[in-house]
Structures are given as structure tokens and as C-alpha cells.
Design a protein around this nucleic acid. Sequence first.
RNA 1: GUCCGGUUCGUCUAGGGGUUAGGACACCGCCCUUUCACGGCGGCAACACGGGUUCAAAUCCCGUACCGGAUACCA
Length: 580
Amino acid sequence: MPDFCVRRSIRGNYLIMTVRVRFAPSPTGYLHIGSARTALFNYLYARHTGGRFLLRIEDTDLARSTDESTRSILDGLKWLGFAPDEEIVFQSNNADKHREAAKRLLAEGKAYRDFTPKAEPNDANVKEAIKERARQQGGDKNFRDNPYRDLSSEESDARAAAGEPFAIRLKVPAEGKTSFEDGVYGLQERDYSETEDLVLLRSDGHPLYNLAVVLDDIEMQITDVIRGQDHLTNTHKQLLIYSALDAEPPRFAHLPLILAPNKGKLSKRKHGEVVSMTTYRDAGFVAAAFRNFLALLGWSAGEEKEIYSLDELIKKFTLEGIHRSNAVFNFHEGDPKRWTDDKAIWMNAEYIRTMSLAELLPLVKSELKANKLWREEYEPDGRALMTSISSTSAQAFESSTEIGDRPESIAIDRPRYGSHDWFVSTVDLIRARFFTLKDFSTQGRAYFSEDFDFDPAAVAKNLTKFPELQEWLPELADRFEAELGEIGADQPVAGNLPLTDACCSDRFFESNIEAVVKAFAEEKGTKLGVIMNGARTLLTGVAVGPSMLSVFETIGLSRTIYRLKSRLAWNEGVKDPVVR
RNA sequence: GUCCGGUUCGUCUAGGGGUUAGGACACCGCCCUUUCACGGCGGCAACACGGGUUCAAAUCCCGUACCGGAUACCA
């Protein structure tokens, strides 16, 4: 007995079925933003109702489906965190069952053989051709005038036996209408006269989409179909198939579409990478942030809150909160700084600066790893990058409970340079200004490597403009060494600076640094900012960043000295003169 | 063409008979400040149009316009 009969009797007895939804992409490209949101809403609905979230790959169109696309879709879903609760169903594996069902309907007289020769589609512009044909038919088309519709079964069988090719079409009743209560759009009705006798099986024996979907949804015991609004007319067709199959249809909910900035359709072909999920993953988006952004595109909990954890989304998600109007994905074509929706970028930054470090750290780690900036010492149980730590400070760090014993000028809770704790506090320090995870390896590169670039704009603004700094900054380095260097320790700054001696002073911390820099600026009769920003550029390569006092301390004394004395930035400024 | 759906700041949206039409992003200004952010304060900015119903319409009804979707031996 087919599944749908079982389901029907269960429903008839008012037994509560657990919700089963599916996300059913066709593998003809990467996972794009619209599909991703559909997956999200299905996932949220399943979790909200305590149901199951399934995945089905609709690969019945062999010509267009690719394994690469399937992989890309799976990657996207994995990144977003939507793992299916059951094994993935590949629709093409069920083709035999689909054919079987079509033949059954034929035998039952609910479908018929159509011997009309297959029209060769002018593949170039199928969509346009179909539209044009429909336009010409106008309002007075008659979907029931197929000459083969009422062919006697004897003749039909005979022609088939003779080897004449045929498609199998569903016999849609002449009078009546399909109707269903949509979870989002409410009551939907469509007169049969608007629905053609749809093809179930192609003349080459391939089952078609609508048949396959219905059969698979029945077999997978799907209770709720949540999909794009572009499927609204398919739903009416599918209802007809459910009815022919004598099966109970699931509930349906259609989602508004996501449009391009010109309010046109968002297409993979036209808009390319900006709509692909893997683009966002690769651009350093936090999956949770993008998920959050996606959730707000076409859905709202009816409150002013905008930042939702996954758990909160699950708790608050309802079909009632879904809109009926389409949303615009407002990216800015050709603007590298605003290449995607402003709000998505903002939300990602918001996540980066507010999410827990426990969640952020692994993301930063993989970003650094990918750029060869990661060091094992940053692991929680890794050793600090300091071999010659003084006994005083080592003790201070390890037993910070005895604060009273230590002289005031020694930083007692400063993490050892290059240690896990240093890594954590550095990430925490610099994340406030970052928009994507990429920033940790680009803008933030100087914190993790000696090999970083100088932003020409920063050099121009903070260095070239004040030629005196060429002398002053190395002088400041000497001052640091003299006044805040390790007393008695001999730590020469080598040209090829080993990271292991990058911090060799217990006195190189904010308040001490501030005193030195302030005195230095006063002595030179210049504004503090000139010194600070010049140093910022030399130390980090960029013009923006945290308070310089924190930067000095985080970079550490040795590297500060080294970088302040480096001619790299200055030389670059010379060899790259302003073009007239 | 026909069928279906939609229309609140530039964008995402709240509001569903009585609101100074609220929030967020973006943008602008001020404050904070060694830079840039963050943060704080403030500003700009919307009910597509026309008819009805009603004491009262962004909200309900009808029409128009515009936008979108569908229309296939694609999915």
C-alpha cells in the first residue's frame, strides 16, 4: 500500500503528525540567496514545530544538473548550519517510481497518451518564446482541445504498441477549480480552465518536475511545503496530481521573492557572485550574521529587535510573520565598498564586535590559518612566545592574586606576548573596527606578522606630511628602550626580529607609554596626535585602529622599537612619488 | 494576452479604523577623541493614485497605475 494512503488514514483519525518539511533545490548552480532563505525558513519552521528538516536534490533534469552544483549547494547549507535530519534524497533515484505512477494513472484513465510530435524548443530564449506563445493564445486558449485526450484506449494502446512516441498528460477535469489555504497568502483558487493537461512523463520516458515532486513529497511524508512564490501555479497543478493519486496534499506556504535593486528578478546569470552563499562565506561573513540578515528579508517578528540568535529565531518564527510582498536585496553593483547589502555588512560587523569570544575565536583562527598567520602558541594550551621572561613578571602573571606584593609600575595582568591570552585580548581589541573576518588578516595583519603592507593613504596622511617624524620616531624608539626597557636585560633589536623576544619589558604598558609619549611630544613641541598617528602608521600600516596606547602595548616593546626604526614605509613613500 | 500576487522613508520593516506614522541600515550634523570606529544626541526621509464606506481611512471596499510571478515534453 502506498504511503499516501497510510498518511490519509492517520490524518483522518486526527493523529498529530510531526511536521516534516524539505528544502528541494535543483542543482543547476550555486546556492543563491533566495534558496538560502527558503532553506532557512524551512529549517526554522521544522525546529519551531519540533519537526524534521529534510533535503532533496531535484536533479531530474540531467542535462542541467551537475555534481559540482550539488556540492556547492551542500557547502552553502553546511556553512549556514542547516544539516538535514535524514539522508539526502536524490530525485533522479526515484525516476522508476515516477514512471510507474504515470503509467498507473494512464491505466486508471486519469491520464492519457499524447502523440503530438514533440516541439523542438528554440533553446536560446525558451522563456521568451513561451511568453510569446502564451501572449498569442491570449485569453481564449482551450487546454482541453488535445485531439488525443479522448482517444479510445484501444487505439491509444495500438499506437503505443506500434512504437509511436508519446508523452503522458494528466487529464484535468473540464470544470471546477483547485483551491488551498496558503500559509502566507491565504485562500488561493484557480479555475481548471487556467491549467493545462500537464505532461507527467516525457516522450523519452523522463518524469517531469510536478509529478516527481508530488511523488517524492508523498514518499518523504512531507507535511508542509514551504517554497518560493514562483511555485504558486505549480501548486495548483500538483494539487491535481495529488487528487489523481488519491493522496492527501500537504499544507503549502509560499514565500515572497527576493528581488534585485532594480526590483527585477535576482538571477544567477545576471548578478553572479553577489547572490552566491559561498561568496559570503569566502568574504569573511559570520554565518550567524548572514542567517540573521536573511531571516529579516521577508519575515518579521513584529518587534523592533533585529539581532536574533538561532534559538531566538526558532522560538519566534511563524508563518504569520512572513510578508506577502517581495523584498529587495539592496547591493550596489560596481561599488567595492558596498558590494552587498549595507545591512548585511552592518550586521556582520555587529556580530564580529558583539558575539562571544568563544564563538569568534575559532572563526578568526581559521581566517589566520588560511593566510598562514596562525601560530600554535595561540592555542589555549600553547606556550607564550617569550623565552626570556623575567621571574617577577612570570610570577605576577601566574599568581595574580598577590597583587599587593608587586611594584605598581609592573603590569601584572598583561598576557604574555604571543600567548593564547595575548591572542584573545588582541582579537578583542581589534575586532571593534572590523566588518568581516577577512579584516583580521588584512587590516589586522600587523598584529600577527612582520610582513604587512603600508596603506599609501596612511603614509601620506600621517608620515609624509610630517617629515620631522623621520627623525623623531626612531628617537621615540630609543626613548622607549631607555625608559621602559628591561632593566639589565640585554635585548638588542635585530633586523630579522625573532618573535620570541618581542616583549621583554614589564614596564611597557599603557600608562607608562603614555607618560613617555606625552613628554616626548611636549619636548618636540608638537601635537600628541602627530606622534601617535605617525607611530600608528609605522606600527600597523594603516591609519585606523584602536587607541595607540593599546597598540603599543599589544605589539610589544621590541617590535615597537623595530617598527619605529624601520625605513620601509618612508622608502615606499620616496619610491612612489605623487604622480603629477 | 491571461491568471495570480504585491505596493509604508533610498533599502529592510513596525503599525491593520483615532499614532507628532515607530525602529534598523545608509546618509548628514554634533558630542566623545591621538586616528578610525564604537557609543551618545540630533537631522533628512514614506503610507502609489482616484473614488467610496465611516464622525474618523496608511488601515476596510472598488477601480486605476506601476511592480513582480506564472504561463515548457525546465526545475
